[in-house]
């Protein structure tokens, strides 16, 4: 009994002392929880119409009735921001997951097969990444009617490259380990070696890449919507909110742009903090960073 407890303490030592006690991790976790709860709970629990127009109360500054103020047709900005965050987060998570899946599949194929397949795939990756990805994203999204899924496809198809590179590099370094030789000698097929030995080993890295991709994908959704190419203007997303409020910024009305902007920054910081702590656990010697 005492032995088991001692063992548990020994195993959890690294987690409890090194990372969970940092302020950064705790505040990031709190922000992430608040964001997710707001997005999941507010729409079903609060019976308010985010599209309710009240022209008598248009462009009011923040007050008790409207904590974030109102927009140019009198819609409550707090409610619009929460609904917008909901759409942006959906796009971000869906696009990041899709990108990570494509990247992992492509990277694992290149790394596990090697040879000319690897060279061919990686030249394709280089080619795609030589095109500015916002430009490519605009091109892809312009082929469809405006909506959530074209934006997801556009962001996913331009963001799988880094995951593919990470996964390929990991697979290449693992492939020459003796335990892979032992698996080959034990009769394992290529597929079995990949699925049983290689992919489980790269999943933490691929998962980290996917998590770091979520805020990046949100930024891209906002950028595309801001350019008028992403979501239709009546769908509240953080990008469409900022785009709609552009005009009023010049006449001194700061709240319709500031609050959606903050709603982009807060989840970004939360995810960056959480992913940074995760990476420090995976690889304590390397500093964590978020690339946007």
């Amino acid at each position: 009994m005492a032995e088991a407890a001692a063992e548990r303490e020994w195993r959890s030592y690294g987690i409890s002392r090194r990372s969970t006690h940092t302020i950064r991790l705790r505040s990031s976790a709190a922000l992430a929880v608040v964001t997710v709860l707001a997005v999941l709970l507010v729409p079903p629990l609060v019976q308010l119409d985010q599209q309710a127009v009240d022209l008598a109360a248009k462009l009011r500054p923040p007050s008790w009735a409207h904590p974030f103020g109102t927009d140019d047709v009198g819609r409550d900005l707090l409610l619009r921001c929460v609904y917008g965050l909901r759409v942006s987060l959906l796009v971000g998570v869906a696009a990041a997951l899709t990108a990570a899946l494509i990247g992992t599949a492509v990277g694992a194929t290149a790394g596990a097969l090697g040879g000319w397949v690897d060279r061919g795939i990686m030249r394709l990756v280089d080619t795609v990444s030589s095109v500015p990805h916002l430009l490519l994203g605009v091109f892809i999204v312009a082929m469809f009617r405006p909506g959530v899924w074209p934006v997801v496809i556009s962001v996913a198809l331009t963001h799988w490259l880094s995951t593919a590179r990470i996964v390929r590099a990991e697979v290449l370094s693992l492939r020459s380990r003796p335990y892979i030789d032992a698996a080959v000698s034990g009769g394992a097929s290529r597929w079995r070696v990949t699925v049983r030995h290689l992919l489980p080993a790269v999943l933490p890295q691929a998962g980290l890449a996917a998590v770091l991709m979520v805020p990046h994908a949100m930024w891209h959704e906002s950028a595309l919507s801001f350019l008028g190419l992403g979501l239709p203007t009546h769908t509240a997303s953080l990008g469409t909110l900022i785009q709609g409020a552009r005009g009023s910024l010049l006449v001194g009305q700061w709240w319709p742009t500031l609050f959606p902007g903050l709603f982009i920054i807060v989840p970004t910081l939360a995810v960056a903090g959480l992913a940074g702590a995760w990476r420090e656990r995976l690889n304590p010697r390397r500093r964590s960073e978020l690339t946007l």
């Binding site: 380990r177 003796p178 335990y179 030789d181 032992a182 698996a183 000698s185 049983r196 030995h197």
Partner: peptide, 13 residues
């Protein structure tokens, strides 16, 4: 063929 390698740490997943 049954193969046993020098370093058990590296030859076990």
């Amino acid at each position: 063929f049954g193969v046993v390698f020098q370093q058990p740490r590296l030859s076990a997943d």
